[in-house]
Write a protein that binds this DNA or RNA. Structure first.
Lengths: 344, 344
DNA sequence: TTGTAGGCGTTATCAC
DNA sequence: GTGATAACGCCTACAA
């Protein structure tokens, strides 16, 4: 076993001072040619690499980014994460992930854990519980400490910071409009409870599209399911009573499950009922029939979030410029597949 | 903005020494009641939290685990990650994830980046390219430096370290056996190229089951696809020529895609062709028909890997006990769904 | 009961 | 050219 070697070891071995070694390895002009060569050769031989922790302590910069997401086994978040990781890595940053599991407490604990020097900034999507409680003190503390924060997807107006979101409302609006134009009259909405801001916005888009086309809102056509949707009975009944000819779902899983139920009841897709889901994930692509869905461009979102964060981190070093926060909006795009009639 | 406060600040403010503050905050018996109270009150007021980096430097333990996986947008790895994260977090560890993207170079770079003090140990699954090149020097260096390493799923015999795998061979063997018992005669195997050790093992199980039942191996029934499987033509032709009555696929995506092709060609599932896939992920569950598949118990795997790693990390502190490496084998289980006939 | 000093590994400033 | 010193924030053995 050959443990890690330090500057001190090299210095002792070569009978020079630590600072000489340090400078020699940095190819400083101050150091004599032969000393430099000697030191560099020795370092290479013993595979010297500076200790990140020591450097972090000195520079007060860890080159680590903290990412806190509600769930990692979820295609959208996973995709965003990939975008973050790729960009951050290319910039020399590492990513520490914590999963809040949709729980407020875990979110708070994780943030505090990381905020004590482990990371240079946060990228996060709020947990369901946090949105429900409307308690954002942990975020406030972070920003007050001057730690950069970027919120994505699940954001809040209560906190002043950079944000990246998609145009949920518009996307839903356009999806419903397409359905209306295709002649659908009874368009249903399958959503989660209201406290998730993205669901709320998608619902808004749904309402707007109906209104704009003079279609009255029928609350019998709106199904609110708990986030996990264990219970299929509710959805089954819904189809019997609501008799929709099109369904907009706020996520893929809802869409797939609903399609299943509809198929079981003998409806043809898309002839009898058309389906559009949000989150263009793996399920949409491989569903049967394949699902028309709204692509949230997760990877792009992650990349932009990372970009914004790293810029803030590296700007903070320079000077205390006037803090300006941005909210970037990514345009969702609809991916047409077989669960909808051909739109013109 | 209120920046982070340090022991030094408290000491200055309260006109005591740094060590007094340090001890007072640890409730040391050495310190007088009133001093302790004063210090603790002040610390609470200003929300003092020790700096992780400084502690890491001092203790030479970061309480960080490095996880290197080939791909995060992949249900199996994601699941393993969740297991790791949950357990590690409960033990007070944070997880730094790097994605190798199936590339050797990225794997090496990421490891080196983290090995310089950022983490206390690694959990990883080898990238495809690493397995193909059969070059494990980066792993050797890590272990020689005394950094604990746990390999999971994509492992190698070349490296002495803890490992967690599933009984791939047996699982494939049993799956094929079930198909044979159900009367299937032309059982196909759809797999990746050989260098992925898990695929190789699954193929072995497939061969064994055939042999044990006196069925000759027909190479026309074996389809090797590139990892990404862009090309559907190959698979289409395969069905025309091979005419299988059952198919074992080494992953879900292959299975789903093959089912699609079979359906398009008018075969009924499972009556004409039965399908079994590996990786019991979200696709298997929501496919149409739902896919019988081999559950690799990713979360459990992650948990065990984390457990083994943390044990090694914390044992290393104590003494230089004789190094013993374990390979834990998790039993895969088959989840029967609608793509196979009812097995007895 | 409190404080001093040294060290974890590195870098930067300044003196020789 | 080279080296001593201090500093990043914390801990702890030892001294007062």
């Amino acid at each position: 076993m050959k443990p890690k070697i330090t500057l001190k070891h090299i210095a002792r071995e070569l009978d020079v001072s630590i600072s000489t070694v340090s400078k020699a390895l940095k190819n400083s002009e101050e150091i004599g040619r032969d000393t430099k060569e000697k030191v560099q050769a020795f370092a290479k031989l013993y595979n010297y690499k500076p200790n990140n922790i020591a450097i972090s302590l000195k520079n007060k910069r860890t080159k680590n980014i903290g990412v806190i997401i509600p769930d990692i086994v979820h295609h959208f978040f996973t995709t965003v994460f990939r975008g973050i990781e790729k960009y951050a890595n290319a910039q020399g940053y590492n990513v520490i992930v914590c999963v809040s599991d949709e729980a407020f407490d875990k979110e708070v604990i994780n943030m505090e854990m990381l905020a004590n020097g482990s990371i240079d900034g946060f990228i996060m999507a709020l947990s369901g519980e946090t949105q429900q409680k409307n308690d954002f003190n942990h975020l406030k503390e972070i920003t007050e400490q001057g730690i950069p924060l970027v919120l994505f997807d699940r954001v809040t107006d209560e906190i002043q910071c950079d944000k990246v979101i998609i145009n949920d409302m518009e996307a839903a609006f356009l999806a419903v409009k397409k359905l209306i134009e295709a002649g659908r009259k009874r368009i249903a909405l399958v959503t989660t409870e209201d406290f998730l801001n993205v669901s709320a916005k998608r619902a808004e888009g749904y309402y707007m599209a109906l209104k704009e086309n003079g279609i009255a809102i029928d609350h019998g056509l709106i199904l609110k399911l708990p986030y996990q949707m264990q219970d299929e009975i509710m959805s089954e009944k819904f189809f019997d009573f609501a008799k929709p000819d099109a369904v907009l779902c706020v996520n893929e899983i809802f869409a797939i499950k609903c399609m299943r139920i509809a198929q079981k009841k003998g409806y043809r897709i898309p002839e009898d009922i058309a389906f559009i889901g949000f989150t263009d994930g793996i399920l949409s692509k491989y569903a049967n029939p394949t699902l028309t869905s709204v692509d949230q461009h997760g990877e792009e979102m992650g990349k932009i979030a990372a970009q914004m964060l790293i810029e803030k981190i590296e700007r903070d070093d320079d000077q205390e410029v006037e803090e300006v926060f941005e909210t970037k909006i990514i345009s969702a795009t609809m991916v047409e597949r077989d669960s909808t009639p051909k739109f013109s």
